[in-house]
Deep mutational scan, measured.
Amino acid sequence: MDVFMKGLSKAKEGVVAAAEKTKQGVAEAAGKTKEGVLYVGSKTKEGVVHGVATVAEKTKEQVTNVGGAVVTGVTAVAQKTVEGAGSIAAATGFVKKDQLGKNEEGAPQEGILEDMPVDPDNEAYEMPSEEGYQDYEPEA
């Protein structure tokens, strides 16, 4: 019985440690998101679009440190934060509304985080759909 109880105690310690790591990862992701939003706020009209992409990228980098179902929630929060940063930029006159959601080359930025393969159960990952990809044929 002692062996059984000791095993359960060790398992509990492992769960607590994993929860603490997840909590730490979420806190880091939130900190990076805040950094990115402050970065966007300090940019001029020309830099705002690039700044919004930076927020998304920093958040995406930190999301990889967070495991399990938390990833889905962090990704949703990050996307809403990026959308909010863009709205703030438009409201303050840093950028025109028609410039939001495009990178410096004018290509749409939507789907940055949505296409990231995420499995809350950590069982399997699927690649994003290939609808947006084109076949590449090298020139002879």
Rank of each mutant, 00 (worst) to 15 (best):
17 A>V: 10
27 A>M: 15
30 A>S: 03
109 Q>P: 09
9 S>M: 14
82 V>H: 03
93 G>N: 04
105 E>K: 02
132 G>M: 13
96 K>D: 07
71 V>P: 01
39 Y>E: 02
37 V>D: 00
133 Y>A: 07
92 T>G: 08
113 L>S: 12
11 A>C: 15
5 M>N: 02
136 Y>R: 06
17 A>C: 06
92 T>Y: 15
112 I>P: 11
46 E>H: 05
21 K>M: 14
43 K>G: 01
106 G>N: 04
97 K>N: 12
103 N>C: 08
62 Q>G: 04
37 V>F: 14
15 V>E: 00
100 L>D: 07
75 T>Y: 15
84 G>C: 14
61 E>M: 06
93 G>T: 04
40 V>Y: 07
33 T>I: 03
119 D>T: 11
49 V>I: 13
67 G>E: 02
139 E>C: 02
132 G>P: 04
46 E>F: 08
9 S>K: 12
68 G>P: 07
140 A>R: 12
115 D>R: 05
10 K>Q: 04
127 M>Y: 12
40 V>K: 01
53 A>P: 01
26 V>C: 12
71 V>H: 04
25 G>C: 08
88 I>Q: 03
37 V>C: 08
139 E>G: 06
85 A>T: 05
45 K>F: 04
136 Y>V: 08
133 Y>H: 10
106 G>F: 12
26 V>S: 00
15 V>S: 00
10 K>P: 00
32 K>Q: 03
76 A>N: 11
23 K>N: 01
23 K>C: 13
103 N>D: 12
55 V>T: 02
127 M>T: 05
73 G>W: 12
49 V>T: 10
53 A>D: 02
89 A>S: 05
25 G>V: 14
138 P>C: 10
69 A>V: 10
91 A>Q: 08
92 T>N: 07
69 A>P: 03
76 A>L: 11
121 D>L: 08
15 V>M: 15
128 P>H: 04
12 K>N: 01
63 V>P: 01
52 V>G: 01
99 Q>I: 12
41 G>A: 11
109 Q>A: 02
73 G>N: 10
28 E>M: 09
132 G>A: 11
56 A>K: 09
90 A>H: 10
63 V>T: 02
75 T>G: 06
48 V>W: 15
72 T>Y: 14
1 M>F: 01
112 I>G: 10
38 L>H: 03
